[in-house]
Every structure is written in structure tokens, then in C-alpha cells.
Amino acid sequence: MNLFRILGDLSHLVSIFILLQKMRSTRSCAGISLRTQILYLMVYCTRYLDIFWTFNASLYNSSMKLVFILSTAYTIYLMRTVYKTALDPQIDTFATYYLVGGAGLLAVLFPYKYTVYEVLWSFSIWLESVAILPQLFMLQRTGEAETITTHYLFALGAYRALYIPNWLYRWFLEGHFDPIATVAGIIQTLLYSDFFYIYYTKVLKGKKFELP
């Protein structure tokens, strides 16, 4: 465990709280992609299968896994019930089928081992790297976003971005290298780069998030 990883995990945790807070304070899920949330739930459910047999390995990991699965399920529940009037299927249209299919293909081609758990783990890593695309696509279509939504996206993107120095640290200091997670994590961070740039140049300077 190193500082980058803890900060990354905390950033992930904070992002979920910001999202729930956004829905509560605006009483709406406007601007949030249901498709992205469903993809994330798939990511957590396939990656954290080991929660059933590694519960004693690390209380930190196990509790974080539970929080990620439950809070994402709760977010989806809220979006489909309490706040469903703000759902806009006309805007949230990204072809998620291709993302799931592509992640599935990569998982079958490059798992560490050919076991159900390892293939699903690899699938979850690849799917996570692109799970934000429906959300970013939606943002592009609307051309603007509420500030609190951009804080959510920043915190979520920072999670994987902070894992990159964590992987470098582990590689140099612990001789530990995880090529699948590292390559997928770099792709994921690159997908966020445009968003990070606009967040930095606009939102952090007190301006509204608007696409040029």
C-alpha cells in the first residue's frame, strides 16, 4: 500500500459521495448517464467476485469492494425510481453493446489464467477502462454540465490516474508489475484527458463547464 493508491481509492470513494450528493441536492439525475452506471456495476460485480473467499485477506479491500458494489447499485436504483423523470434516453445513447463485447473479447484473449474468475477479472479491467464513454458522450451532446457533476467526473477519473504512479512505484520498489491493469488504466486516463483539460481551464477557475 502506498500513498498514490490510498489517494486513488479515496478519490473513488469521494466521487460516489459527490454523485449521490448531486442527485440529492438537485433532486435530479440530469446529466448522469445510466448506461455508464450500469457498466460500472458490471465492472464491480465481475471484479469483486473474490469478496466471498478473500474476506479475511484485507478488511480495507473487502469493505471498499462492498461499498463500490452497493453504492453503485443504490445509484442505479435511485436513477430508475426516485429520479427517473430526469432520465433522458434520447441523449444517453452510446452503443454500450460494443464496449461490453470489446472488453469480453480482450478478456478472452488476454487473461492471466484461463479460469472463470481470471477471465472475469480481466473483463472488468477492460470494461472499466471504457465504462465512462457513454457519460462523456452524453456530456458532449449536451455541451455543458453542472459544476457538481464535473467534480464527480474529476474524482472518478483521478482514481485511475492516481493508480498510474502507484503502478510505477510498485514496479520500481516492489518488482510488481500488472500489465493488464496498467495498460487499461493508461487508456482510461487518456480517455479522460480532454475532460481534465476543460475541468482545469474552466471549472477550477470558477467558470461553467462548457464545451467549445
Binding site: 493508491r5 481509492d9 473513488h12 473474490d50 485477506a57 484485507s58 479491500n61 471498499m64 469492494k65 463500490f68 492471466y112 489464467k113 481470471e118 477479472w121 493508480y163 502507484n166 510488481h176 500488472d178 493488464i180 491493469a181
Partner: peptide, 10 residues
């Protein structure tokens, strides 16, 4: 061993 160790991250 290597693959298992990889999964100690979230």
C-alpha cells in the same frame, strides 16, 4: 502467484 498478487488492488 503472480496473477493473485495482481488482484490486491481495487
Amino acid at each position: 502467484k503472480k496473477a493473485e498478487k495482481a488482484h490486491d488492488e481495487l
